[in-house]
């Protein structure tokens, strides 16, 4: 009798388990389906629009025809600009946290601040960029102002990856270098930085992937609604892919006629993000393999 009860209990609890796991599996499949739905939708609708003219022509006929070349170039400039700012500053900040700062309170404080910065909504960066870079420093609506605003957004990612990369370098390397008479700065420059570089670059590429898709920070600091020429200097406004997608999808003279342009723009944007992700993953894999063979 007792054994019978036990068996039925056992059957029930295993039944519960298979139901629960079945649900988990189904919901996990759902996530994959959602991703492929979004990507597939954009890719299928967008790929037909892509041709050489679309990539190399400025928009024409009130943005209902022509290409998106100025937006591609603008996004490219913004990525470069934000990297020029965020990379050195972020790497130095990460190095300070790991190599110089007194362990404990100071590092914890900086880490909290970095996490807080990472959590600030992008539209607040946009507001700040407008108040500080555009108005207070007088850059106006320009690539500089946009790049700096986006650079602030990328900063926490670069800092985190740098800190982690430096943390994983064994202390023996530092001691070896110092024992040979090198100064701390020399140790960092000649020994630690080259070792951490692959991972730091991975972080940079990931952050640039994020920067390339951000719209809210450049709305009021840089992005031009329609500017069918290329920017002439870094104090020029420019078009950018994400903002262009927003514009052609929501406003303009003829939304129906703009729809193919929107699909094409979304496609190019997705491709850039995918390439950035693959690149970062590739570098990470390559680096991991190199470590293993060592």
């Amino acid at each position: 009798m007792a054994i019978e009860i036990n068996q039925s209990y056992n059957r029930r609890k295993h039944g519960m388990q298979s139901i629960a796991f079945g649900i988990f599996r189904a919901l996990s499949c759902c996530i994959v389906v959602i991703l492929f739905l979004i990507l597939g939708f954009i890719i299928i609708k967008g790929i037909g629009v892509i041709n050489w003219d679309f990539l190399t022509m400025p928009p024409t006929d009130g943005m209902t025809a022509g290409g998106i070349m100025p937006a591609i170039v603008g996004t490219f400039w913004l990525m470069i600009g934000s990297a020029v700012f965020a990379f050195p500053v972020g790497v130095m900040s990460g190095i300070y946290m790991n190599e110089y700062a007194p362990k404990g309170k100071v590092v914890a404080f900086i880490r909290t601040m970095t996490n807080n910065l990472a959590g600030i909504p992008s539209i607040v960066f946009g507001l700040f960029g407008m108040a500080f870079f555009v108005n207070y420093l007088g850059f106006g609506d320009s690539i500089v102002a946009g790049s700096l605003t986006l650079g602030l957004l990328a900063l926490p990612i670069v800092i985190r990856t740098t800190e982690e990369a430096f943390k994983d370098i064994p202390n023996s390397y530092r001691e070896g270098s110092l024992a040979l008479g090198a100064t701390k700065a020399q140790t960092i420059w000649h020994v630690l930085l080259p070792m951490a570089m692959p991972r730091v670059i991975t972080g940079l590429i990931l952050s640039l992937g994020r920067v390339s898709g951000e719209t809210a920070p450049i709305l009021f600091t840089c992005a031009a609604y329609f500017l069918p020429r290329l920017p002439e200097s870094i104090f020029d406004q420019c078009m950018a892919l994400p903002y262009h997608l927003y514009v052609v999808a929501t406003s303009g003279t003829d939304i129906e006629a703009q729809l193919p342009i929107a699909y094409g723009t979304a496609f190019v944007l997705i491709v850039i993000v995918l390439i950035m992700n693959l690149l970062a993953n590739g570098i990470r894999k390559h680096f991991e393999n190199k470590l293993k063979t060592k």
Binding site: I31, L245, T250
Partner: peptide, 24 residues
């Protein structure tokens, strides 16, 4: 295999999500 899927979901720009929402 699932990890990159989630990373990609995180990487898709918000304006693309908005466009997908608007269109679908």
């Amino acid at each position: 295999m699932l990890k990159p899927v989630i990373e990609l979901l995180n990487g898709i720009p918000s304006v693309v999500y908005g466009f997908f929402g608007l269109a679908v």
